[in-house]
Amino acid sequence: MHIVNRVRECRFFADEMTQQELATAVGVTRQTIMAIEKGKYSPSLEVAFKIALYFGKPIQEVFSYQDSD
């Protein structure tokens, strides 16, 4: 099981906003945004919703579940 995300892409289309700007907006550290983008850390539902809401997208457009099989 693996959760994939399009946070990097969303940042790009939001005028190439920085990781720090997104981190401040959703209340986490820049390193956490970096770990999320690399797929090393799956955020809590709360942070995932905050990120999706920040970009004005439904959560399933930003985060999706991928079966490893």
């Binding site: 209340g27 986490v28 550290t29 390193q31 956490t32 770990a35 850390y41 955020p43 809590s44 709360e46 942070v47």
Partner: peptide, 10 residues
């Protein structure tokens, strides 16, 4: 203050 408190990953 937020950084000192840490986030969910911390």
């Amino acid at each position: 203050k937020n950084e000192v408190e840490g986030d969910e990953r911390d």
